[in-house]
Design a protein around this nucleic acid. Sequence first.
DNA 1: CTCTATTTTTTCGAGCCCCGAAAAAACACT
DNA 2: AGTGTTTTTTCGGGGCTCGAAAAAATAGAG
Lengths: 413, 413
Amino acid sequence: MSVGIRHDDLRRRNRAMVIAAVRRASQPSRTEIAATTGLSHSTISAISSDLIGEGILTEGKPSETGSLKRGRPQVGLGLNPEAAAVMTVVLSLNFLSVAVIDYAGQVIAEEQRRLDTLTMARGALIGECVAIVRRRIEDPDLDVRRVARIALAIQGITDTDARSMLWSPITPQTDIAFADILEAEFGIPATTENDCNMMAVALRWRDPQRYRDDFIAILLSHGIGMGLVLKGELFTGTHSSGGEFGHMIHWPGGALCRCGRRGCVEAYAGNYAIWRNARQLGEDTEPVDVSDADMRTLAASAREKDGPEREAYRKAGEALGYGLGSLFALIDPAPVAMVGVSAAAFDLIEPALREAIAQTAGGQHSESISFDTEPNELPLIREGCAMRALTFVDQEIFAPGVQARTGTGKNVA
Amino acid sequence: MSVGIRHDDLRRRNRAMVIAAVRRASQPSRTEIAATTGLSHSTISAISSDLIGEGILTEGKPSETGSLKRGRPQVGLGLNPEAAAVMTVVLSLNFLSVAVIDYAGQVIAEEQRRLDTLTMARGALIGECVAIVRRRIEDPDLDVRRVARIALAIQGITDTDARSMLWSPITPQTDIAFADILEAEFGIPATTENDCNMMAVALRWRDPQRYRDDFIAILLSHGIGMGLVLKGELFTGTHSSGGEFGHMIHWPGGALCRCGRRGCVEAYAGNYAIWRNARQLGEDTEPVDVSDADMRTLAASAREKDGPEREAYRKAGEALGYGLGSLFALIDPAPVAMVGVSAAAFDLIEPALREAIAQTAGGQHSESISFDTEPNELPLIREGCAMRALTFVDQEIFAPGVQARTGTGKNVA
DNA sequence: CTCTATTTTTTCGAGCCCCGAAAAAACACT
DNA sequence: AGTGTTTTTTCGGGGCTCGAAAAAATAGAG
């Protein structure tokens, strides 16, 4: 049950709040922080003085604030890049990428690697991940001061606690406890995150105007994934990362999905589904990998003339539209970001999608539902991981609670 | 943005916590409260002494605790029934029911009334609600000390803030701001809640063992409704009460739904849908009201022999199964309570439901998904309303914050 | 029947934390 | 150089929770 508030918690929470305010804004003054947090000037003064003393925050140069106002100029507070560092590991189909990021959010090192994830043995896959992390951590050229957190994102299903990958389309392996493995190997706290959830987290940091409290990020790629933020918090399932939009049922008993079942949204809107429809291979055709280049060619020919290619995108739009309609029945409409290679073909998808959504309960105000597209998912995923890891450091390392955490830590995106 | 914690908030929150602990447990001692809240004995002592002084809590008779242990006997704390009262108003098809409930949760007065909600004019409908509330409040026989809160539940869609009914199947009227109307009329804070959400709230109080952090309450009645609790909080949409499970799309372009669209789950599993399928009237037949008695007869004949009646329940099960499968894809499986008249026919529904759910992503562990049935929704709805109103009094009246509430008050079920 | 062990509850002083008001600091403008 | 303005720090006051010790209330032992 939820637990009472101890006296020490107070300072802890307010410290975390100040750090969060500094991370959100760029170089806010103490006065601005007081305004956004609602705390008094004296409190902010005390806390920020502590944080500066501990090397977590730094005072900006007074000149930087080009304010030509009268009075004592504000002095902006910033995150001390040297306070800590975090690592992101993004594992996607045939591709592994890591980055080291300083406390202020700047990438200070990275490394990428192709590998054949679909055929690799379990040990090899884990070994590659561990090895690439080790290379970055032990790199003597770089003063990787204190890597305080590792966030690994993977396409597929992870558990609610962000410890393990449960299932993934990029490998036949299941139940890999990446977080535990990395923690055991390096002694650094780690998490295993769902890629689409990280996309959502990143969108929220990139454009808090549009992606605020409620929005949806949908990955249109080989598979269909979703990251969902509701009421300002990342939505996860009761046991897993959840939000498996691609495996909502569009047509009972319909087309064959990569997951082995039938009629999933993905079986109409995933790359392989669009491909086999465009090539008129039949809905039972075994899913195959299609390269991004091939998808772009497909989109081009669909744009050129009417035919099976265009029809394939229409079907994808229909499936996505009915799926979104069902989703909207549950959560009400919200802004949508379409990410991934097929987001670049959204012009081909949108008409049928809107037509379908208009047939559903959520589509009452179909016009007001707005879509945004972003063809490149990888940078988003890495950015999300980075912010996730950094906010962990903000909260758990630099504002440590005396009290053992009983409640499920809020999924603040 | 989330706001800092003021010093005064501390006491407020801990007061609320103590009250909540007393409401949850039955006659807990100060020591027990200290244990569950994690606060020190001194703090609990101070707070409970305040609360007793203010007439919010009462000390139980020492004899009541039949403890034969050595040492000073614990003295149980209880809610003072006279501290306040709340009112519940449940508005369903052709039926209006109110109850007055004391602070300890006991019903102390009630009144019910049949009316023809489908044909009533807007003013008449509102007038009936106001009038029945006034009769209870002004009843001289009853010392309705201080009605501190009114909770009105209605079948249909309400807004996130629980102020207005946006749309309801029980009346052609839309956008009735019941909360504002009742507040203006009686000067008592009021809310407008979705009926299925209140069912979920009630289940959580009734059986916290089974209905704990994640579960689903589905109303199988004329329409199909859902109340959803995720991570211990009532799930609502971004703008409305959300969770319109009945209007997820089961079959694109399929059977005609009461909402005017096609293929909704409700168009296969609502009473009217089961009825028209059993009578082989065709899926485009205009939805008609079916009495509970008729539904029971229908279920009986479906049990008796195979035929269109049984097939109608099979179809209902299939639609519910695929719908739940899509829902589980998003939130992962969770315990389900089936409520309402067709829950009494769940034996006819379950086989097809399980078969369908096994075809979906959420159905991987179909056997482990457990269903419970409760044919009577009204008591549940009222109970939920009562608890909702009472916890409001607990938190907002008896533990008032100095601070203006900025955050959206958590939907603790 | 008294005394002791035990458990619950209250009391009291200490230590934090936040707040408001006033003072200090750091400029722009005259 | 002086004045007005805005930001930041300092200081005292009031509250809150906590731990330790005291007080209260009982069962069992002798």
